[in-house]
């Protein structure tokens, strides 16, 4: 096993390791930081900063799915939004099709956004209740001038409805007339209309009933195969992520802990956090559950306002040593394509 040690977030240094020999990645995120100002205590107190995303590096190849997992507050959603420039990064680069979005503004950015779309978690809150399903799907097509004339627009909307498994006759219905699963299909159709090459899926199935989740996952996979769309699939359900992703990245308290191919990360997790996370997932098999060894982490995730020194995971890590309290572990490639930030690996 070759161990290549790379200095922590330096964006240039990692250029060569990322996606070497795989051609240019569709999305290449380097040293991404998103900091939010926060006030603590009285007005006289100095301003603090919440480092929601603190030096995150990953890439997504065309047509592949990268699963981004972590617990609430780890910064996975903020990462997704920062990729789309819905929140502007504090530092770092977001290279999409080779161009850095962070430096872009106005019309240029708007043009790039057409190629990257988002599907939200909450199918109730993310669709306008005063618009019909048809209008919701038509809006981005009109805004970006993707169609000419009413006839073409109607035809395209009908086509999109059918692509996501709804019927064209549902075009005139309002959002409240649809079930949760159907609403999520409308969200998918809206994202699909602009023929994006990347869709950020932010917990797209976690608000849905178990029996409906599989429908939406299958739909997303089918669309990916047909249109070669890449997904940045943000989720906390590790079983769902394992099913849909080619590669998986694990975040904790704003930092990347580990990333590798699906098989590698689920079979040979290197980081103690990934190991604990995987062992905590209950498996629907009573036989197995009674005998399975579990790593129960102590305590809670620390407040992002006061992250611990050294490795952010050290306060809960069952394997932590003195070094973990002192130095931030470097993000390095422990095995080919298997990246990890841990002193003990």
């Amino acid at each position: 096993m070759t161990q290549i040690v790379v200095p922590a977030p330096g964006p240039i240094a990692q250029e060569d390791q990322q996606g070497a020999g795989l051609g240019q990645p569709l999305l290449d995120v380097r040293g991404l930081q998103v900091h939010f100002p926060a006030r603590q205590g009285g007005i006289m107190e100095k301003r603090r900063v919440v480092k929601a995303v603190d030096g995150v590096t990953f890439h997504v190849q065309p047509g592949e799915t990268l699963g981004l997992v972590g617990e609430s507050g780890c910064g996975k959603t903020t990462t997704g939004r920062a990729v789309l420039q819905l929140v502007r990064p504090t530092a770092g680069q977001v290279l999409f099709e080779g161009r850095d979005l962070v430096t872009m503004q106005g019309e240029a950015l708007r043009q790039m956004r057409r190629r990257m779309q988002i599907i939200f978690q909450d199918p109730y809150g993310s669709l306008n209740p005063r618009m019909t399903a048809g209008d919701i799907i038509a809006e981005p097509l009109v805004v970006h001038g993707m169609v000419k004339g009413r006839q073409q627009l109607k035809a395209r909307v009908d086509e999109l409805l059918e692509t996501v498994g709804l019927s064209a006759t549902m075009r005139r219905r309002y959002v409240h007339e649809f079930s949760g699963g159907q609403r999520q299909r409308i969200g998918v159709a809206r994202a699909l209309g602009l023929q994006p090459s990347l869709i950020v899926c932010d917990e797209p199935v976690s608000a849905l009933d178990v029996s409906i989740q599989a429908q939406i996952i299958n739909l997303l996979e089918h669309l990916q195969e047909r249109h070669r769309i890449a997904y940045l699939f943000i989720a906390h359900d590790l079983a769902v992520v394992r099913h849909i992703s080619e590669r998986v990245a694990v975040m904790y308290l704003g930092k990347m802990m580990e990333s590798a191919d699906r098989l590698e990360i689920y079979e040979r997790p290197l980081h103690p956090y990934t190991q604990a996370l995987l062992s905590a997932v209950p498996i629907p098999d009573p036989e197995l559950e009674t005998t399975r060894e579990r790593i129960i982490l102590e305590g809670d995730v620390p407040s992002p306002l006061f992250p611990p020194p050294g490795c952010v995971f050290q306060t809960r890590c069952p394997k932590a040593v003195a070094q973990c309290k002192e130095a931030v572990p470097a993000w390095r490639e422990a095995a080919p394509g298997h990246w990890v930030a841990c002193h003990l690996v």
Binding site: V210, Q213, A214, A239, H243, D285, L288
Partner: peptide, 12 residues
């Protein structure tokens, strides 16, 4: 229901 959920202990 049992068929529809992906599981960590089974091949994908």
């Amino acid at each position: 229901l049992l068929q529809s959920v992906p599981r960590l202990n089974e091949p994908r």
